[in-house]
């Protein structure tokens, strides 16, 4: 039998091991979330990220090496965004009747996300570069990276803030809506899609299919609006 270290050093350089690790970490997160009765705090993404970050740290693996394997999963973000057309199509009769609430909630939610994040960040002394990094944090990852880059922020840090925002939204949405006594699934879904993009949308799909469809619409519309809004809002605080 060959030395374990030798086999490891070979495997660690191939995409296979980190692709497998990503799927297994997610399955573990999903299993725990199921066991916890889909409790908001046991978010599958959160669990998977913590497990993988610990694994990278223990095995002294760089993020670049990890991403060689994980990029195959990451790539699917684009096709998945396109696939959101399916729930939109299925719910089109309901969506059509709610055009005005959708437009109004988009402006309110998207504007509030960008302006309040920048106002708080500015008040707490974040540098202009970090403000630019923070501004697009409510939009879906591929869009946020582009906006951050255009504004002079750090795209990779933006990616992390985007994921964190998604997890925060997914964790708070259900308790918050129940506390506020809001039972309209369209409103619940749409608001979390605008504020917490795909991770919020994934959470909405777990809770209610109609909420999921509206979350997908919120995420898509917010991506377009933030691209226009973020440069203007950043100008107010720099």
């Amino acid at each position: 039998m060959r030395d374990f270290a030798e086999i490891w050093s070979y495997l660690a350089e191939t995409p296979l091991i980190w692709l497998s690790a990503t799927l297994i970490a997610y399955l573990a997160g999903d299993y725990l979330a199921q066991r916890a009765g889909r409790a908001p705090l046991v978010n599958p993404v959160l669990v998977a990220v913590v497990l993988l970050a610990a694994l990278l740290w223990v095995t002294d693996t760089s993020y670049a090496t990890y991403f060689e394997g994980a990029q195959f999963v990451h790539f699917l973000l684009g096709p998945a965004t396109v696939a959101l057309a399916v729930p939109l199509w299925l719910n089109w009769p309901t969506v059509r009747r709610a055009v005005l609430p959708i437009v109004a909630a988009l402006l309110a939610g998207s504007g509030m996300a960008v302006l309040s994040a920048l106002a708080i960040g500015h008040a707490m002394g974040l540098s202009p570069e970090l403000l630019a990094t923070l501004a697009p944090k409510g939009t879906t990852a591929p869009v946020a990276l582009g906006i951050s880059q255009n504004l002079g922020g750090s795209p990779t840090l933006t990616a992390v803030l985007v994921i964190l925002t998604g997890m925060i939204g997914a964790v708070v949405i259900t308790p918050m809506m129940n506390m506020m006594g809001i039972r309209d699934w369209r409103a619940r879904g749409f608001a979390v899609g605008v504020a917490a993009h795909g991770i919020g949308t994934a959470r909405a799909f777990q809770v209610n299919p109609q909420a999921g469809a509206f979350a997908g619409i919120g995420m898509g519309l917010n991506a377009m609006l933030t691209a226009l809004l973020a440069p203007w809002a950043l100008g107010l605080f720099q």
Binding site: T22, N43, V49, Y66, L77, I163, M167
Partner: peptide, 9 residues
Amino acid sequence: SLLFVPAGV
């Protein structure tokens, strides 16, 4: 949700 894991790491 799975698709957000690589960026999150």
